[in-house]
Design a protein around this nucleic acid. Structure first.
Lengths: 206, 206
DNA sequence: TTATATCAGAACAGGCCTGTTGCGTTCTGG
DNA sequence: CCAGAACGCAACAGGCCTGTTCTGATATAA
């Protein structure tokens, strides 16, 4: 994991920074945001209080709240599993399953939801969110669908971006609304893929 | 339109309230929220300033910010078209088209996005949003799918809530992220319905 | 005309947050 | 041992927002 924070410099002498303070601050942000706090509304006093840390120590580590949030975003971002299963369909199920898991993580999804709502107030944060979270996942899904077409598993005339959007949309909508009832990593992804594969049209009576 | 505000009482004597002030305040909220303001972060001074209205007049009309936001929500909420076309498929296209339109309305979608992010801070607001916007639209879509099944147009073994979620998900995700490139009321809804009807699975080589 | 309610503008205390500074204390490498 | 840095705690000025209260002017019904 690359260190985001430019203020994380190795000093030669003196007391060392307590690494626990960093994680406590990040955890505090996740807790408070998932409890309803806003990125711009969240105050450093509240973060320090909830983290059980001196407000001073926060200013020492992060020059601005944006910098702190960048590290929070890094902490929330999990690497994609490089799945290479037998069929594109299984790959799709596997990837949607990880997306279900992220959606079920209340703190992570609250953070992303808050970020989406305040994208204009935190442009750099939003840019990195898109570049490091959205774009990679989208590209992987594009690749899987293309592979499915190449293997003759998926119709070659489909609109790939549209297919990916339809597959991912329901879960992103759930993440956005925070409604997670009935979501399950094992079954939900399977059922979405099944539906999108088969379609809903009734067979023509021949 | 039912008046939400309990402070809107008819007085017998005295100068009458300028109705323009009400709409100016609501417009100001929509403008400021779509420019990135937060529901809890937005201040009455900013609203009054942007509306060109005395801060006094706002307090006279709305006891709390929640009350004002309730009226904003009412102003944004548009009635569903009661479509009754030839096929369920056409009905679905028509309803998704109105959803595309709502998504393209930057101010309305910003407001709803802000509300989703701060649901816990404005529980009553969120409750009414769900009851008056989400639930009616969902119910109408359920009814259309059921009709499609009854007419033999849609497979009878589909999971109706899942179908609706897959149809609506891509648009809600767009509304949540604010990414509206390539969205068009005439074509987008048609293409989503087409894809979900046909599915993506390649025909078995017989 | 008179009572009443609205209007804009200004002021005020109180609260919260920021960013910075200072203090004494605790740790750690040289 | 000792210099250097991190630590917690406290204070401060400055800014913004709230909720309320004035003013004087304006509109409207009885």
């Amino acid at each position: 994991m690359t260190t985001t924070n430019p203020m994380t410099i190795e000093r030669s002498a003196g007391r060392k920074r307590d690494p626990h303070t960093d994680v406590a601050a990040i955890e505090a942000v996740l807790d408070l945001v998932s409890e309803g706090a806003t990125l711009s509304g969240l105050s450093l006093v509240a973060i320090a209080e909830h983290a059980g840390v001196s407000r001073n120590s926060l200013y020492r580590r992060w020059k601005t709240k944006d910098d702190l949030y960048l590290d929070v975003l890094d902490a929330v971002n999990r690497p994609l599993p490089d799945s290479e299963s037998a069929t594109a369909r299984e790959d799709l199920v596997a990837h949607l399953a990880t997306l279900v898991e992220r959606t079920l993580d209340r703190r992570a999804s609250s953070m992303l939801r808050a970020l989406q709502a305040e994208a204009s107030a935190f442009p750099e944060l939003h840019r990195r969110y898109f570049a490091e979270v959205v774009a990679p996942r989208r590209d992987v899904l594009y690749r899987i669908v293309r592979r499915g077409i190449a293997d003759g598993e998926i119709r070659p005339d489909v609109d790939i971006p549209l297919v990916v959007e339809v597959l991912v949309g329901p879960l992103l909508a759930r993440m956005g609304s925070g409604a997670i009832e009935g979501l399950d990593p094992r079954t939900t992804s399977h059922r979405i893929v099944e539906l999108v594969y088969a379609g809903i049209q009734a067979a023509e009576p021949s």
